[in-house]
Design a protein around this nucleic acid. Sequence first.
RNA 1: GCGCCCGUAGCUCAGCUGGAUAGAGCGCUUGCCUCCGGAGCAAGAGGUCGCAGGUUCGAAUCCUGCCGGGCGCACCA
Length: 648
Amino acid sequence: MFQQIENAVAEAFAAAIAVRFGIDKEVTVEQPKQSGFGELAVPAAFQLARELKQPPRKIAEQIVEALEPIPGVKSFEIAGNGYVNIRLDRGAFAAAVLHKTGALDAADTGKIIVEHTNINPNKAAHIGHLRNAVLGDTFVRMLRAGGRHVEVQNYIDNTGVQVADVVVGFHFLEKKTPAHIRDLIHTTRFDYLCWDLYARTSQYYKDEPDALAWRAETLQAIEADSGDLAEMAHLVADAIVALHLKTMLRLNVEYDVLPRESEILHLKFWSSAFERLKSTGAILLETEGKNAGCWVMPASAFSTDTEAEDGKVIVRSNGTVTYVGKDIAYQMWKFGLLGKDFYYRPLLTYPDGHEVWVSTDRKLDIAAPEFGAAKRVYNVIDSRQSYLQDVVVAGLKAMGAQKEAAQSIHFSYEMVALSPGCCVDLGIELSEEDRRRPYVEVSGRKGMGVKADDLIDQLIQTALREVESRHAEDAPGIRLRIATEIAIGALRYFLLKFTRNTVIAFDFQEALSFEGDTGPYAQYAAVRARNILKKLTDRGEAVPDFARELSADGLAEQMQSEDFWQILVTASKADSTIARAVAAGEPAHVARYAFQLAQLFNNFYHQYQVLAEQDTKRRVFLLWMTDYFRTQLETVLGVLGIHVPEYM
RNA sequence: GCGCCCGUAGCUCAGCUGGAUAGAGCGCUUGCCUCCGGAGCAAGAGGUCGCAGGUUCGAAUCCUGCCGGGCGCACCA
């Protein structure tokens, strides 16, 4: 709601400036620091002061004189050295909120692909993977809330070194056959077993470097796609992918399609990309130096730095393509630039009915949705890979795909590390050097880290203790469901409240907290709002038809209260907050807003006794505020992927 | 060595892309269950925004240089 007024104000100011000074200027609209200054502030006079060589205050006066009336705006005031503060017509604004006038114009800018999660399918997911998935999933929800068409991809590297290493562990260290693995998949916690096995294999390489030959042998077998080793790789990767999807579903994360590396290989995506890169001169064959015999992308393509740097090898001297090369091909496919497509089959149907598809190398008799060919692509990948992402974008640029290069966005974020206290909790021994660090990096190779499912289980247990102490009489099944919703709310919020480029030093105590700036705090506020309405109907009263029972005059009168006005304005900013957060690419802004909203409601809840209100008109009004709050909070929590439990 | 990120209250973090008196949560101190109220509410203490310059009406925010920390810079993915 708030967004329309903001836009109208910005336009009116721009028009006034154009008329009065003949200058085309984009006008920024701010929210004043203090509520006493009004609802909006325009600092345009300051920006114009230099150009016009006039004092800002004088310019502000001229702007205000030239302004046409803006619907919904009551007054303009010049404040300070040249701010124009704006007060809204409270009654009109409240009425607009009540009658939901002015629907958002959902500008469909074409398909957007968001790629996230991308966990190597060789072991259980850990806390770092959760940050990726929750950030990606929330951003998807934010985009969809703004009416955008989004496709969610989760890339599966099922033929890489990490899968190979687990196969090495099974075959060479454990002497297992495909039949054994089939059995293990059904009888064990397979992703946990692989977690340990992967760590053991990595350690074995360290002790016995000759064993690396096993890895090479396995990788070859996987690429040739024949024999026991290849079969085991399929079994491991498919089983782990299934488990990852399950883990992510616990967090309300779903996907549309899983493109797999095996198909990129078998369908020869690379050869198409290779031709294009060669013919456009994006990559060059080195004839001398240490990269002799390799196809290399010159450093000048992706680095502004001196030419002292080497280029990036795309095709090795033995003719095989590097990971970055495959990534360029994949990125081309995402934009529909490759001239090739995968085949698809449905992998599974989520409980909500949504279907996730997976790539396959054979044409099937199934009508699949159209995947790929997007206008814009977000790759959710941690900041450590920004160098490689730069190379991918440079590849697009060098082959002449300027537009696509500009629409390739590395949605980067910092890693989740382990706090020293967390390491103690996990029984991880730290070296003298590590102990002096502020945090320690998670290492899959060392088997170091917090497994996603362990953390979720622990959160559920902690929440369950609380639920049980408050609702001892309720059925265990319902209590568990509620504890689960609280746990997931806590976890998602915890991963979202930090801005993307903040390193999260994971700490159990912080993550397990349900008080203060947490998901459950926001859930609790929503539950309270629901409780009021539920209590009302429990007493046999109907929820009023607010649009009919609340008159414009009545609203205007109630809105004279500073409290109510502030609450209404803040609650009406959901759309505008989400839009800003999308523009900034920052889900944390939405989380912060949800918390603010919850705080405001808890405040209101404490201060006003809605159901006990004697004045009938006022009671209807308070009920409306409650209901509006509830709607807005639920909407925002929905964007964060957080459910509201039926009670807490 | 080069590149990117970070340094804000005791701790963990925000700070809307340069605006008005720098904000939350946790922790600490104090008070609040006659309830739609305690996963909560109210109040208090707590700041040289790493340091030094610069840019301008105005800097936590932009520029430069230091100091301190993190992460990258493979014919690995």
